[in-house]
C-alpha cells in the first residue's frame, strides 16, 4: 500500500492551496454582496469576506510559525461580531420603514 501514502503526500495541502481557497471565498463574498438583493444575505457575504481574510492570516501564521497572524484573526472575529450587531440593528430599522429588506427598493436617495 505504498502508493496510498505517496498519493496522500502528493495531495498534502500547502500554503498556496490555503491562499487559493481564501481568495476564492473572498471573491464569492464580494460577488454575493454585489449580486444578492436581500440585505441579510448581503451581510452574510460580508462576513464571508472577513472570514476568508482570517483563513489567510492563519495560514500565513502557520507557514511562518508565528503567533502574530493568530492574534490578528482573533481581533477580526471580535470586530466582525461588533459589525454584525450593528448590521442587524440597521436591518431592523430599515424593515420598520419599508416592511422588507430588499436593497433594490432603497431609492429615496439618488443622484
Amino acid at each position: 500500500m505504498a502508493w496510498v501514502s505517496t498519493l496522500i503526500s502528493y495531495w498534502e495541502p500547502t500554503l498556496a492551496h490555503y491562499l487559493l481557497l481564501s481568495a476564492a471565498v473572498f471573491s464569492i463574498g464580494l460577488i454575493g454582496v454585489m449580486v444578492r438583493r436581500n440585505a441579510l444575505i448581503v451581510f452574510m457575504s460580508i462576513e464571508l469576506m472577513l472570514n476568508s481574510v482570517n483563513l489567510s492570516f492563519i495560514s500565513f501564521a502557520r507557514y511562518r510559525f508565528e503567533m502574530d497572524g493568530h492574534v490578528f484573526a482573533f481581533f477580526i472575529m471580535a470586530v466582525a461580531a461588533a459589525e454584525a450587531a450593528v448590521a442587524l440593528a440597521i436591518v431592523i430599522h430599515v424593515f420598520r420603514h419599508k416592511r422588507g429588506v430588499n436593497v433594490d427598493e432603497m431609492q429615496e436617495l439618488k443622484y
Partner: peptide, 25 residues
Amino acid sequence: RGAEASMKYFILGSISAALMLYGIA
C-alpha cells in the same frame, strides 16, 4: 432617508474594510 443612508454606509463601509483587511493579510 436616515435608515437608507445608514444601510448604504454600512454595506459599503464594511466592504472597504474587508478589502483593506485582505490587503493587510
